[in-house]
Design a protein around this nucleic acid. Sequence first.
DNA 1: CTGGATGCCTGGGAGC
DNA 2: TGCTCCCAGGCATCCA
Length: 271
Amino acid sequence: MPELPEVETVRRTLTPHLVGRVIDTARLRRCDFVTGKATPAALLQGATIDRLERRGKQLAVIARDGRAVIVQLGMSGQVLVARAGAALPTHVHAVWTLKGAQTAILFRDPRRFGGLTTLGSADELARVWESLGPDALTTNGGELWNAIRTSARAIKPALLDQRTVAGVGNIYADEALFESGVHPKAICRRLSRPRVERLARAIREVLARAVEARGSSLRDYRDADGQEGAYAALHRVYGRGGLPCHSCGRPLQKLTVGQRTTVCCPRCQSR
DNA sequence: CTGGATGCCTGGGAGC
DNA sequence: TGCTCCCAGGCATCCA
């Protein structure tokens, strides 16, 4: 579910609850969603939280001693701040308690496409993040051009590939392609440099506006404080197949690109 | 290097 | 009310 704006909103809402605090206990209620060591220590028990960083859709909770946990929300994942000792909602797979605070941090993920990765050092985190492309919120035309200019794939699956640019998912790919007038099936290497520049700008702007609106809530998504995001009401194409294009008024087309539902305007977006 | 199919999961909505 | 089917924000893997 969550794409970059939702993960960034979780990062921002979670930060004041975690930074500077000491993890009292870290408990797993199942362990098949953890990559790496699944011990309390690997899950930061006893550690002091230094900072929360995001790259693309990955959120890293980093301790002062270098230990880190990467949180990936998958389709339905949530990180929630709860009252310590309160009854747990369904599908909570990990619970952290904090020293000197009446709060618990929950990892909840009904579909379990998400997960945690435990890491022992900042180096390990850097190595994992090397496999991701540049962060989509701050990418530029040059980076995008280098990533796609020789590729024979369609642009939409290229954008969804986290090695091209990190953080774009199905919603914001459609929104950015519409905004820049690029058809989702346009072949990467046939796009001109100016069009790639325009696309990169659209990616940044769409994502920045979505972060400002605290993300898109379709069904599952909530930030760490349980709040919904407001950006879904501002989608111009995603979820609007058959409805009039905001630009030309003709019906938006729903199609499948790279096995993902895609909505675009056949008139305003060209290949 | 491509695209396509499949699998991993649960839950919500549509249609009967 | 209850059943079946389809769909969903992600991602890895296998095959042609």
